[in-house]
Amino acid sequence: MQITVKLFATFREGRFKQADRDYPIGTTVANVVDDLAIVPSEIGMIFVKGRAAEMDYVLKENDALALFPLLGGG
């Protein structure tokens, strides 16, 4: 199934901003994180279609997954 993966801030270094990628049915956020060699403890925010999600979230066809390191501002 196709998943749009969006990366931000330091996660873009050596990777990409946005890419449509193929994953098998049943893929979780954690699987994608692993596939991209992102250290799980560095993840600050996970959004799937604009809603906060956890690492065990099971992705669906055409989901947009956004991964951010821990960041802040204000």
Partner: peptide, 14 residues
């Protein structure tokens, strides 16, 4: 590194 403007993409996603 990114200053407070790093929030633009975060709030957009949210």
């Amino acid at each position: 590194t990114y200053g407070t403007a790093v929030l633009v993409n975060i709030l957009h996603e949210a």
